[in-house]
């Protein structure tokens, strides 16, 4: 059964969003379910700080041995940091999807968009159905 932490928000495209101490900055990654579906992750292509994306824009790709998946930006904003550790060890996403496997930190253009995300219950229903 995929792990769905109670303190995060989710998208139907299997990204998670974590609020940080700065109300305008969130951390983004892919869910345990997503990493399990992809299998062993061998390559991640992430944007550099300063890159801007609108909600649902493609902000990167994650590649497993046999699968490629585009990463959809859950919210509009500007990248303030991307996880450099993933370059050398993309399998961190498999091992710690909600921890060391985080992908980018995003400064939100419109924090009200947070209301468009799924809560853990909503996401759980989404992957069950």
């Amino acid at each position: 059964m995929a792990n769905i932490p109670a303190d995060l928000l989710y998208t139907p495209e299997h990204e998670w969003v974590r609020k940080t101490s700065d109300p305008k900055v969130v951390e983004i990654g892919i869910t345990d379910f997503a990493q399990g579906e992809l299998g062993d992750i061998v390559f991640v292509d992430l944007p550099k700080p300063g890159a801007s994306f609108s909600r649902m824009g493609v902000f990167g790709t994650v590649e497993a041995v046999k699968a490629v998946s585009e990463l959809f930006c859950p919210l509009s904003g500007e990248v303030v940091e991307s996880n450099a550790a993933l370059d050398g060890d993309p399998a961190l996403i498999n091992r710690e999807p909600y921890g060391g496997g985080w992908m980018v930190r995003l400064r939100l253009t419109d924090p009200a968009e947070l209301g468009t995300l799924l809560d853990p219950k909503g996401y759980s229903a989404k992957i069950a159905g």
Binding site: G39, D40, V42, A64, V65, K66
Partner: peptide
């Protein structure tokens, strides 16, 4: 297509 994982 896989059991434990393709790399393993």
């Amino acid at each position: 297509v896989q059991y434990a994982g393709i790399l393993a």
